[in-house]
Structure formats: C-alpha cells, structure tokens
Design a protein around this nucleic acid. Structure first.
Lengths: 235, 235
DNA sequence: CGCGAGCTTGACGTTGTTCAACTAGAGTGG
DNA sequence: CCACTCTAGTTGAACAACGTCAAGCTCGCG
C-alpha cells in the first residue's frame, strides 16, 4: 500500500456521481426529471438507520457524516462530500432499509433518486450496474483502511491521520477551517474529546501544525505522515 | 437492530454462490467448464493483498480468514465459509489487485473463476450484476457490525460476540471444536492472547461455557448475549 | 525421554478514558 | 449595560482496562 492510499481513511476519493456517465442520455434525462433536491441544516438527519430507504441520496453540496448506530453508541464510517452517494447498501435488502444514519455537518444539499428507478436502471444498463459495483468496492476498501487505522493506531496516529485526510481529501489545502466541534473531531478520530485537545496541543508544540480556534494549518507534512506510520501499536 | 443481526459480526450469513442462480443455464455451463478447483492446507495463503486478482475465489469447503494488512499489522475482516466469494472488491480496480489477504484456517478447497469472465457475465446479465451488488452490500453491512463491536466493546464483549458467531453462524451448534489457536482467536477478537485465556476462564467460572481444550460448549446463551450488549463501553 | 510450540499465570506498565473543576465566549433578559 | 446562563473548550488528577513481559507449564512428537 502506498502512503497516499493510507490517508483515504476518512472519506472516499472517487466521485460516485461519475457512475451516471454510463447511462444513456435518455436515462440521464429520466433521473434529472424525477430527482428531488432537498437541503438540510447543520446537525440534521439526512438518512436514519432502520428507516425505509425510498431514495438513493446524492450529496450535491455540503458535508455529511455516515455513521453506524447501535444503542447509544455509534461509529463513523466515513465523511460524505459532494458527489458521493448514500444508501447504496440498502439495495441488498428486500425491505430496503437504511443500514446507517447520515447527518449534515454543515448546510447540505442533496438530490434524491428513487430507489426503484435506480434498481431499474441497473437492470436496464449493466454498465451502470458495473459502475455501482465499483463504487461499492471502493467504499469497502476505504472502510478497510479506516478501521485498520482506528484499531491499530494509538490516539496521536488516529488524529494525525484525520488531519491529513481533511487536508488532502476534503479541503484540498494545508490550511483549513474545520467546521467541527472538538467533540465531533473526537468521534471521527475514535478518541475522547480531552485526548483530541491534548494531542492537538502536542502537535502544535512539536511544530507540526498551527492552530487558531477552528483553523488548522499543517506546516510539517512529513511529521504527521510519520506519526501515522509510527502511531501503530507495534513499531 | 435486532439481536440476531448483532452476531453476524465475524462472518456473512447469505451464501454468496446463490448469485449464480441468476445466470442462464448456458452461462452456468461456461463457469462450470472454465473454473479450476484448488486446495490449500492449513495456514496457506489463498489470496495475497496486492497481488494480481486474476480470479474470483469461491470457497467450496473449509474455513478461511480474510484480512487487511499494512506493515506488520493486520485486521481480520471476516471469516469465509463454504459458499462465500473472495476478491469481489478487486473488481473496482483497473489493475485488479487483491485488496486483502485470505488464509486457510484448515484444509480449504476453492473454485477459481476468471475475473474477466466474471465481469463479462455482469455485463451480459444485469440480474447477475444486481446479485453481486447485493453481496457487496451484505459484506459492507457485516463489516459495519464487526467494527462497531471491535471499537465499542471491551474484551469480554468482543470474545462473547465471537463465540456466539462461531456457534450460530459457523458451526451451527452450541458445542463446537474451534480449529484455532488461542493466538488466532485473539487476532479475531481483536484482543491479546493472554486476554483470551483469562476471559475464557472467567466465562467458565461464571458457568456461561464449558471448555475442554479446543472444544467449547455454550451453556448459557442469555449470558453472552447480555455480555455483548453490556460489553459496550458506556452502559 | 527430551525438546519445543502453544498455553497459562502473575506482575507490571502504559494508554487513554473518565471525572471534576475551571475558563471563555455567546446569547438573554432585566 | 450588566448579571446570568449555557455551551464548548481546556486542564489536571485518578483510575481502569489491557497489553506486555517474563517465567513456568503441558502435551504431542520425534
């Protein structure tokens, strides 16, 4: 595995919406015509695990977290950025229930595509089906990397990895303003809020980052990358 | 989530090979004709992460672990039982590389199906493609449950969950002989070898299980189920 | 009979969570 | 304009769960 695949741990790189490229113009027109656009505010639920997944959700604008819940506990599976699809795994289920919950981090606009229409298009157009298979595979690979990191790295490794992912894959800049609370960062990195604060402070003391409120700038890229690698439990 | 979905955490319930039901007789015949049968001994590598995935692997007999590796560390994604497919996530990749390693726990016989043939069949037969999508979705859902447990439960919860999964989904009996070393159990449950031993001993002292070498019998099912639920960090 | 791998046990150390107290800033109402 | 409150952020101390280490044990096999 190369080092740039490692930092895909919190999101997926490929734009899922590119799967629509394999549709005919006519099929694209049907989707365009039938899709519905909806907006959610910060913190609102876009999809609720266990609810009926009548639609596949395409993130058009904004930022959302995809999380698996059980009881009071949850884990964050990934962050969804514009171009990502949510709800594909409901296709497996005859009842078509959402297998996870999605919540907006910031104001988020989505397009809703009827699940039955989606299924119909897969049946009609096997290239489209193949494109969906590719997306599912990619999500699967990202999940492997994500959980590898959460299970094998210690707290500073998890956090460094998250920062690199934010910088490289979400904001595409070494300086960015995190629209997340410390608690949300903690949830994402799989550590406690207090550990986030202490670890960020250490990073700053070690001149790896600078911080001003929610704005973070990564000044030493090699550092965090090494920390990701060294932040594994046996090494 | 109901309690029986919880215990799918170490394997997948649906027989993947059922996807071949959506093929025409002619297509089935092609697969039958072209597939190759291979056997692996205990501990041997069936698929190596990063190697060229020229074939999709169907487990015919035996038991294998599917693991994601990075450096010296690894995590076990799932256990593959007869009827399961390995290598589907390579379909996403133009280079068609295995995204994980598979190793035989015991003597394992597999059927190899050419990846290009597999792709061709998806293109020819969209119902088959849809069946593959269902499998990928199911694997994705299983992975969510598995990692939820590994990240949110403490050691006794992880181990109880594993025993229930072994009993319910792999051996279909409350008494079974584990073909695994303590170290392999530890790797699967995501805890240390010593913790496995201590925790199993506790389970025995609490009359939840009886043990005789590698043979384990679950005598109190409610106990482990409760432990799974209580074995979460905040509750 | 002796060797070695896997198993077991106890002691110890470390990581990171939890708890509690304190601070800062934003919004509210008198 | 100033208390008041509420939330998010921060800090320190104590604790608990587990992993690690080291040493002994057991059993199968040569």
């Amino acid at each position: 595995m190369t080092s740039d695949t490692r930092v895909t741990s919190c999101t997926v790189l490929q734009k899922h919406c590119s799967c629509f490229d394999s549709l005919t113009d006519e099929q694209k027109a049907i989707i365009e015509e039938k899709q519905v656009v909806v907006s959610y505010k910060k913190g609102e639920v876009i999809a609720r695990q266990g609810a009926f997944a009548s639609h596949i959700i395409l993130i058009d604008e904004g930022l959302a977290k995809v999380m698996y819940e059980d009881g009071n506990e949850n884990i964050i599976l990934r962050i969804s950025t514009p171009g990502s699809l949510i709800g594909l795994s409901s296709l497996s289920d005859n009842n078509k229930l959402f297998k996870y919950t999605a919540k907006a981090y910031i104001k988020t606009t989505v397009k809703l595509i009827d699940t039955n229409l989606f299924l119909e298009l897969i049946r009609e157009n096997s290239e489209f089906g193949l494109a969906v298979i590719r997306i599912l595979s990619e999500i699967s690979n990202q999940k492997n990397e994500r959980f590898f990191g959460l299970l094998n790295r210690q707290s500073f490794g998890k956090l460094a990895d998250l920062l690199l992912c934010m910088s490289g894959n979400i904001f595409h800049d070494n300086k960015f303003e995190l629209p997340l609370s410390r608690k949300e960062i903690a949830e994402l990195a799989g550590i406690s809020t207090e550990s986030v604060i202490r670890t960020l402070k250490n990073f700053q003391a070690d001149n790896l980052i600078t911080m001003d409120g929610k704005t973070i700038e990564i000044i030493d890229f090699d550092g965090p990358v090494k920390i990701c690698q060294l932040g594994e439990k046996n090494s």
